[in-house]
């Protein structure tokens, strides 16, 4: 047994380990990077989804940018007003929260509504499929249907439906907009979470050209722009464009649209109901776009529930406040 060799190796290896350990210890103190302590605190109140909706690479990047004073405090759409307020406290500033948003699919042409032009056998990926003549769907504007949005969603809020259109779970959606930027066709968009009505078509064609390729596509008839009581819609490049500031979520456009290209997110709509104060002036009959009110002049009118969509226009014009909206939620009378 060569004890000297064992001792020699022990000393060498142990000594080497000790020296390296001491060097690393000194280095960790000397080379320590001073991190702004506000950055760590901001990072701790951010949601940590690393979705990139704020425009910075992940929550760490955003926290660093805020601490450096380079980023607005309310860019986090995921955290919403609550997080913006906490960041404001840390930075000692007043903040106004960003409006929470939700991603929606603005195409309704599934496999039953929008036929294919050709059989596509290539890579099962929206972006690659879209490169080939604009994708296999006859409508070159619509959703390609290979679920690229499903793969990019950081919170798994999107899944593919039976009809090869993505379904977005609004409760899970954090409104980061990743799917919107990744979609090769631009068939996804962000709308304010509190708004209920949106147009679900992106086709810039009109009339027959749309009818031939999709049964639910907007044919650019412009009816919605004429029926809108507040002028929130205007035609632009063969598509109605919604001004969400003006829109009152009445739902008239959605019910009047001949192709059903609008989507109403309201879980249910109220119905108008006329009480005995009614004088039978007939103002409500004139304003109702759905012929849902009937009655003889001078007598109490009544609402036909099957026709009423609960838009609330009659409530506004009634001179004696004889009409109420009752029933399902969606919006309350006050918002009108």
């Amino acid at each position: 047994m060569d004890w000297s060799l064992i001792i020699k190796s022990l000393v060498t290896l142990g000594g080497l380990g000790l020296i390296l350990g001491v060097i690393l210890l000194i280095a960790s103190i000397k080379l320590a990077v001073k991190v702004d302590e506000r950055e760590a605190r901001i990072r701790s109140v951010l949601p940590g989804a690393n979705c990139g909706a704020c425009g910075y690479p992940g929550c760490d990047g955003y926290a660093a940018a805020i601490a450096a004073g380079k980023a607005p405090l309310n860019s986090c759409s995921v955290g919403g007003p609550e997080v913006a307020r906490k960041i404001g406290e840390i930075m000692g500033q007043e903040v106004t929260a960003a409006e929470p948003k939700v991603a929606v699919l603005i195409c309704r042409g599934g496999k039953n509504e929008a036929p294919l032009r050709f059989q596509y056998k290539g890579a099962q990926n929206c972006r690659q499929a879209a490169l080939l003549l604009g994708g296999p769907k006859a409508c070159i504007y619509g959703c390609v249907g290979f679920g690229h949005c499903v793969t990019v969603c950081p919170v798994q809020a999107i899944r593919m439906g039976e009809n090869r259109l993505p379904i977005i779970d609004e409760r899970k959606c954090i409104g980061c907009g990743r799917c919107v930027t990744e979609c090769p066709k631009g068939t996804l968009t962000l709308i304010p979470r509190r708004k209920l009505i949106y147009l679900a078509c992106v086709s810039h064609d009109r009339g027959r050209a749309v009818k031939e390729v999709c049964s639910v596509g907007c044919i650019a008839c412009g009816l919605c722009t004429r029926v809108c009581p507040v002028g929130a819609l205007r035609m632009e490049n063969n598509l109605p464009v919604m001004d969400f500031q003006k829109c009152i979520d009445c739902g008239i456009c959605a019910h009047k649209c001949p192709t059903k290209s609008f989507i109403d997110r309201a879980p249910g709509r109220p119905k108008a109901s006329i009480n005995p104060r009614c004088t039978g002036c007939g103002e409500c009959v004139k304003v109702c776009q759905f012929k849902a009110i009937e009655g003889e002049p001078g007598k109490q009118h009544r609402v036909i529930p099957e026709k009423c969509i609960g838009c609330g226009q009659c409530v506004l014009v009634c001179p004696v406040k004889a009409i109420d909206l009752v029933g399902a939620l969606g919006h309350s009378v006050k918002t009108i």
Binding site: T12, L13, L16, G17, L20, G21, I23, L24
Partner: peptide
């Protein structure tokens, strides 16, 4: 052992 130790450090 020595190489691993030194490289890691």
């Amino acid at each position: 052992a020595v190489f691993i130790l030194v490289i890691a450090a």
